[in-house]
Design a binder for these strands. Structure first.
Lengths: 226, 226
DNA sequence: GGCAAGCTGACAGCAAGCTGACAATAAGGG
DNA sequence: CCCTTATTGTCAGCTTGCTGTCAGCTTGCC
């Protein structure tokens, strides 16, 4: 795992694998180092022994209930900010969540953007500055302002270019195959020619200069000097 | 932070005698020293002169409206946490309440348990209040008077325009995507065309002049910084 | 050398966003 | 209760700049 400018750790406790994957993606994109678990026992142990800057906790867990986990954390003086996810509209859960020591709650279904916004607010309120900066080599990516800078000098990129960079940054420990990038940028429903991606890469390279986006022929693209 | 068990004062402003009685009972049981009034004028006077740790405020008051009371408090720098109750749980009222300075909001009918939970949460994190005057570049917003000024010169804006500006101000560190603005201004239940937002932006720009509201194509709108 | 993967400049299509006009609705005043 | 005014959503036409495609080229690999 490569270094981030600020090291914000987040724990996501969610048993639905699809939501869990979304959580991980969104939080990672927001600059958190994310750990995911769907098991209540596991969650309790992690939250009790590790230091997180944020916990996203789903109440609808099998086995050990999310509320019980939260109460046991609070009973042990674990004071990290906890954002609780509740099934839709059940007022009891909200009440219990707050009384158990949740710092904020979000009813399902929710928008990832809102979750990120609330998560940042929580972290900021807790004292730490939200980790908005991700770096790889000379490239730095401000996930909050959606800004890109090379060696500190801001560079203007388009939305598509930004998404591409963000995805590479998220997976900077490996070369990302063109097929995967195409699917992430456009979705498999909308079929684009492979050359479209190459065009985006070319334009980005012209803006960022050499030595930022590398190619491993046959494997994919990656951020250099990460 | 004060202790709940020692001496927490709460003011309940509610004209319906039955609900008022319930409020008093529940808050007392929760450890508050409770005072109740059903008169807006009386409430305003009490809130302005006495020090409360919590206010529960019903908007549906005769004579002096609850919202007006709240605004007058905030205008006088009374920063105690206020939990607003409203009968008509419309989305607009919630916005108005929060923008008038409410710290939380509860639609009727509600469960007493939930009210107590929210009240406790409010008291627990009592402290952080939005500043009365917010600025970004040449633009300044007076959140108490709902007033807008550009370079010190007051500009008259409509309620909708103000809400848009307030939201941009609240998130002035990032570009706000149109989808998010649409959701905030109208709510997802009421679907508007995307162009409605552009129309509001255009009108605002004409009033405020250039260099205030910026656009980052593909990312969203933002307030130009100093 | 030959093939396939990848690069690049040019360009046209297209989508995001802007604006003025207008109608419908809401608010206010007599 | 009617009249007046302000607010605001919708529409049509327009501008801008993003982005996919194409053609031709370079590079690596066998």
């Amino acid at each position: 795992m490569k270094r981030m400018s600020t090291d914000m750790r987040a724990l996501a406790v969610e048993d639905d694998p699809r939501i869990a994957a979304d959580l991980q993606a969104a939080l990672t994109a927001a600059g958190f180092r994310v750990e995911v678990t769907g098991d209540g026992e596991d969650a309790w142990f992690l939250g009790d022994t590790e230091d997180y800057d944020l916990v996203v906790l789903d109440l609808g867990l099998p086995a050990l209930d999310g509320l019980a986990v939260l109460k046991r954390w609070r009973a042990n003086d674990r004071t990290m900010p906890v954002l609780v996810l509740t099934a839709r509209g059940t007022w009891q859960e909200r009440v219990e969540g707050i009384e158990a020591g949740a710092d904020d709650y979000l009813p399902k279904p929710f928008r990832m953007e809102e979750l990120i916004a609330r998560a940042r607010a929580l972290v900021r309120r807790a004292g730490g500055h939200a980790a908005a900066l991700q770096e790889a080599g000379e490239l730095s990516l401000d996930t909050n302002r959606m800004g890109v800078a090379i060696r500190g000098v801001p560079v203007q990129v388009t939305a598509l270019e930004y998404r591409l960079l963000a995805y590479l940054m998220q997976h900077r420990d490996r070369p990302v195959p063109p097929t995967e990038l195409l699917e992430h940028l456009y979705g498999d429903d909308d079929a684009r020619e492979a050359n479209a991606l190459e065009a985006v890469i070319a334009r980005l390279r012209r803006k960022l200069g050499p030595g930022v986006i590398g190619t491993r022929r046959g494997f994919g693209y990656f951020l250099e000097a990460a």
